[in-house]
Amino acid sequence: MTDFGFTLSRSSALDLTKADTRLYERLCSLSPDARTCMGCGSCSATCTAGPYNGMSLRKVILGLQRGQDVRPMLKGCMLCGKCTMVCPRGINTRQLILNLCRIYD
């Protein structure tokens, strides 16, 4: 193939009808406030673990809604609780993370 100096990136379109959201639903039954997340990203902005392994609670919740594997992000969480303090929706984020760590299989 001729090298034109650029490539086409693969489509990042998601087929949400095929996404496996069972884990998200299970999480919502344990931490109902997960549904109130509006994805503002305050949690990610303050996250202690973020700079080290890319942890972002906003992305975790989004990933679950899309049926993606969020374990690599979750592993970095130190439960420091800053995300709880800044969440404008008052989501108990620490409990949400702990619940998620428990139900993953």
């Binding site: 080290y52 392994n53 374990r71 979750l74 592993k75 970095g76 969480c77 130190m78 702990l98 998620l100 760590c101 428990r102 139900i103 993953y104 299989d105």
Partner: peptide
């Protein structure tokens, strides 16, 4: 006493 399926990993730090 509780068990967690996802164990933390801080090797990136």
């Amino acid at each position: 006493e509780r068990k967690y399926a996802v164990k933390a990993d801080y090797s990136d730090i």
